[in-house]
């Protein structure tokens, strides 16, 4: 699978943004297996970009293609299929079902297209240090814990692209490293690409491409 952006720019950004950006206004193609790092200071449109790529928002000019198909013409149903089978995401704001337990949050995602067994959930949670939190309500978890739940959730499905929007903003270095390693393993096992947007360069992400937003 390929992910292509063509002359992309949020409608609320001036054209001048294209001049200094390696993403906005450019024609780029990302392919499976690539490790793409996007360094973006605050306000540069990092979250917008991730939302555009994942199809949450459509207020942009230019084109985004999944393989050869423009996502502009995708229906909600088309996006559902992509999100179930091909594209996964860790959102900056986690987006958990706060009244559900951690396990329920993960199980709701897993049952959609089970790539891993139930046991694997426990294993991943243990690995990221939230094994004891599986039966706690998500709203009782700290941001750091919630972030790790969101990370595990993104890994429970098959994917060709994993989009990361500041996935470690609430994690310390050690926990970030553990999470990163897990994601890298999972991506490698699927020969998937990771598009990782963050405020600054993180040393432990072995990127193959680097862009400044």
């Amino acid at each position: 699978m390929k992910l292509t952006i063509q002359d992309l720019l949020p409608v609320y950004f001036p054209e001048s943004r294209k001049q200094n950006s390696e993403i906005w206004g450019q024609n780029l193609t990302f392919e499976s297996g690539e490790m793409v790092k996007i360094v973006a200071p605050s306000g540069s449109g990092k979250t917008s970009l991730m939302h555009f790529l994942y199809g949450i928002r459509k207020d942009y000019n230019g084109e985004i293609l999944y393989d050869t198909l423009s996502t502009r013409n995708f229906t909600a149903e088309d996006f559902a299929v992509q999100r179930k089978d091909s594209v996964s995401i860790v959102l900056q704001d986690m987006r958990l079902l706060t009244e559900q337990t951690v396990l329920q949050n993960l199980e709701i995602k897993r049952q959609l297209n089970p790539h891993h067994s139930k046991e694997k959930i426990t294993e991943m949670a243990e690995r990221l240090g939230i094994g004891s939190k599986l039966n706690s309500l998500a709203k009782t978890c700290s941001y750091g814990e919630q972030q790790r739940v969101a990370i595990i959730r993104s890994l429970l499905q098959p994917f060709r692209f994993l989009l990361l929007d500041e996935p470690f903003s609430h994690l310390d270095n050690n926990n970030s490293l553990l999470a990163m390693n897990l994601m890298l393993e999972e991506a490698k096992a699927r020969n998937a690409a990771i598009i990782f947007a963050d405020l600054e360069r993180i040393e432990f992400f072995p990127f193959t491409k680097l862009y400044h937003l």
Partner: peptide, 14 residues
């Protein structure tokens, strides 16, 4: 919010 999240996770609207 919950329904929106389900759609975000890839649940089919239909």
């Amino acid at each position: 919010d919950s329904l929106q999240l389900l759609l975000l996770l890839g649940y089919s609207p239909l």
